[in-house]
Amino acid sequence: MSVIALNPKSEAPVNATRETAEARALRETSPGQWFPYAAPQPRARDTRENAFSFRGISRKFGDKTVLDNIDLDVPAGQFIAVIGKSGCGKSTLLRLLTGLDKPTSGTLTVNKGTAGENRTRIMFQEPRLLPWAKIAKNVEVGLTGIAKGAEAREKSLAILNEVGLADRAEEWPSVLSGGQRQRVALARALVAHPYILALDEPLGALDALTRIEMQQLLERIWLQQTFTAVLVTHDVAEAVALADRVIVIDHGRIALDLDIPLERPRRHGSPELARLEGQILDTLFGEKAG
């Protein structure tokens, strides 16, 4: 298997905002050369339009209010992490966003992006691959209604290459490891170039090393493509390492909305990350920890 360079740390970005070495390479090389399906378009995230907004969204199950009057605007291209205790309604938030569930009250506006179709994709905690379809066919599920036949196959092989699994295209999912299956699920979510990618603890079941590898892969692909990422996670360190912005949900409300203005690539365990992590944990468990 070819070794893929995860998170190349070569050149530091010139200006501290968003333009990494990779993004520049992407802009300057021809599309086919670098990444065949991410043509360097004007970057959506610079225009600062909203990818989606929640206005007074509530969701009740019976008498139980899970989400209570949530207001949230997420600019296109932002990487936002959602943190909260178990059962606080994080998955419910993603299900609302992806249309799997409807709010009890409030309005939800989801933009469609330039492609026109609604390309909101969700990646679940489990890979949810079809056991009876080869890996490449599983990735092609992500192109349902978008591409067929040879075109679909070509695209799925390209994205499999991107996640480092090009040589496994003709295998059954049952022979892959947990981390590899989750990478296939990521490829499936990304193959149609989503406008919004919702991730519901996709790395929760992975071991620590595979987890870090997946985080770097996710960051790299997010930097290449221009989607808006909404990552639900239990792991505060993961949230501050990856996201532009972290929100904490507590008792159905947004208890903290924190920008993470650190440049990328970020180093695990740096003092700023530790400080932000502490701030989030304080919100979650009260001030006594600080």
Binding site: F124, E126, R128, L130, V141, G142, T144, G145, R188
Partner: peptide, 21 residues
Amino acid sequence: PQLVEMGRVYGMSRTTLFFRV
């Protein structure tokens, strides 16, 4: 049911869902 939900999220029609999932 998780696979069926996945199929729906990816926009499979009822027939596709039946034959593929």
